[in-house]
Simulated scan of single mutants.
Amino acid sequence: MAKVELKCTENGPILVMVDGKTTAALCRCGGSKNKPYCDGTHSKIGFKAEAKDIQVL
């Protein structure tokens, strides 16, 4: 079975990692024009948030 992890990066997107490889970066700031994927807008609008790991059941 694949190991899936979600990691909220500091001031950035949620990284979806499968077996240690990043497979997607999801928008967390709400400003992406390519939702649900990150397009880097967080750095332009000054989005601030803590890094956090999310447990996947």
Rank of each mutant, 00 (worst) to 15 (best):
G46D: 08
C8R: 01
D39A: 07
V4Q: 13
V16L: 14
A2T: 00
N11Y: 05
G40S: 05
M1L: 15
N34G: 10
K44C: 06
G46R: 07
T22G: 10
K3S: 12
V4W: 11
T41H: 00
D19S: 14
M17Y: 13
H42A: 05
E50V: 01
L57C: 12
N11A: 04
K3T: 10
H42T: 04
A49M: 09
C27Y: 09
E5A: 02
E10D: 12
K33V: 08
G12Y: 03
S43G: 08
G30S: 13
L15F: 10
P13G: 02
A24T: 00
K35F: 02
A51M: 06
F47D: 02
S43E: 04
G31S: 10
E10T: 08
K3E: 10
R28N: 11
G20I: 15
A2H: 01
I54E: 11
F47N: 01
S43P: 05
I14V: 04
K35Y: 06
D19N: 13
G31K: 07
T22Q: 11
T22S: 10
K44Q: 03
K33F: 11
L26Q: 13
I14R: 04
L6C: 00
A24Y: 10
A24F: 08
G20V: 14
K52I: 09
K52L: 09
Q55I: 01
I54H: 08
K3G: 09
A2M: 01
D39M: 03
D53G: 10
R28V: 08
V16T: 13
Q55N: 04
G31V: 02
V16S: 11
G20P: 14
G12N: 01
A49K: 08
V18A: 13
G30V: 12
G30Y: 11
A49R: 07
Y37P: 00
T41S: 00
N34M: 10
S32A: 08
C29D: 12
K21L: 15
G46W: 05
L26K: 12
N34F: 10
K35Q: 02
C8H: 09
L26G: 11
G40V: 02
G20L: 15
V18M: 07
D19R: 06
T9S: 01
E50C: 07
K33T: 13
T22Y: 04
L57S: 14
E10L: 08
R28G: 10
F47W: 07
G20C: 14
N11C: 02
V56T: 08
E5L: 04
L15P: 13
A25P: 14
K21F: 13
N11E: 05
S43A: 00
D19G: 15
Y37M: 00
